[in-house]
């Protein structure tokens, strides 16, 4: 029992070390492109494959998340005669936390798993070895485009989640709680007032988007690192995908908490 726990712990430490090392390699290569135009095109392709294709599910999940938050919160607020605050609460929830978190979970399921599966399959079928034999750096060729694309698309998709979630919340506020659209938007606008960065970026907005970028990079690094470490044929690839998804979700939660604490609680 102790041996098993130790082995699991050691595996986690080794995996974390590998992922951190991979992140370092990605960052070094990001600031020293060898073929800027070609590498830019590779990033754009990955943005389409792993980001644009996720838009329909992001919109659907965002709308329903906003509706749920609005309904649950609205019921309690109505009990206190404060349903007019619903716009503020829905907007603050979406922009600060729900937007980046929901988007990260969706990208973990769609893109993070795909990165682990694609690269894991390449590893077990010796395509990664073939790249190394051709003196082609697998980190620059495979990992960097995915990590960059996921960082960018997580920000873009989070903005969409924020907007569509708030829209969904507004619809429920109007139809279920009797809060008019102007009253809802007034509350939502109020939630985003206060501290500004560069004179126009509301704190709730930029903290949420910064979280989204960090989550996107994390999902890409974790997915790719698990794929690169895959072994043992199709079963091994399956294990790598599972580990990538679990690790990404856990790390998104932990990092999300500490970033919230840093911005709002410290």
């Amino acid at each position: 029992m102790v041996e098993r726990v130790g082995a699991v712990g050691l595996g986690m430490v080794q995996g974390s070390g590998y992922a951190l090392g991979l992140l370092g390699k990605v960052l070094r290569r990001a600031f020293k492109p060898r073929h800027p135009l070609r590498e830019f095109r590779a990033v754009v392709n990955q943005m389409y494959d792993h980001g644009v294709k996720a838009i329909p599910v992001v919109i659907l999940v965002a709308v329903f998340t906003g509706m749920i938050v609005s309904l649950q919160t609205g019921i309690e607020l109505r009990g206190m005669g404060s349903e007019g605050l619903i716009g503020r609460i829905v907007a603050a929830s979406m922009f600060r936390e729900m937007g980046p978190f929901i988007t990260a979970i969706i990208l973990t399921a769609t893109a993070g798993s795909a990165c682990a599966a694609e690269i894991g399959t390449m590893r077990v079928s010796e395509e990664i070895d073939a790249l190394e034999m051709m003196s082609i750096d697998p980190v620059r060729f495979l990992v960097l485009p995915r990590v960059a694309a996921l960082g960018i698309m997580c920000v873009a998709l989070t903005l969409m989640t924020d907007c569509f979630g708030t829209l969904g919340g507004a619809a429920i506020a109007k139809t279920q709680l009797g809060v008019s659209y102007p009253e809802f938007w007034e509350g939502a606008r109020g939630a985003l007032e206060g501290e500004y960065l560069l004179g126009f970026l509301a704190k709730d907005l930029y903290t949420g988007l910064l979280k989204a970028f960090v989550f996107g990079v994390l999902i890409g690094v974790v997915g790719c690192s698990q794929g690169l470490r895959a072994s043992g044929g199709a079963l091994g690839v399956g294990r790598a995908v599972r580990r990538a998804v679990v690790a990404s979700i856990v790390l998104v939660l932990i990092l999300g908490y500490y970033m919230t604490w840093a911005f709002y609680g410290a």
Binding site: M122, S125, E126, E127, D129, A130, M133
Partner: peptide, 11 residues
Amino acid sequence: FGYVFQGGALL
């Protein structure tokens, strides 16, 4: 070196 892998290892 050139390396021909067992399954080809084509992308």
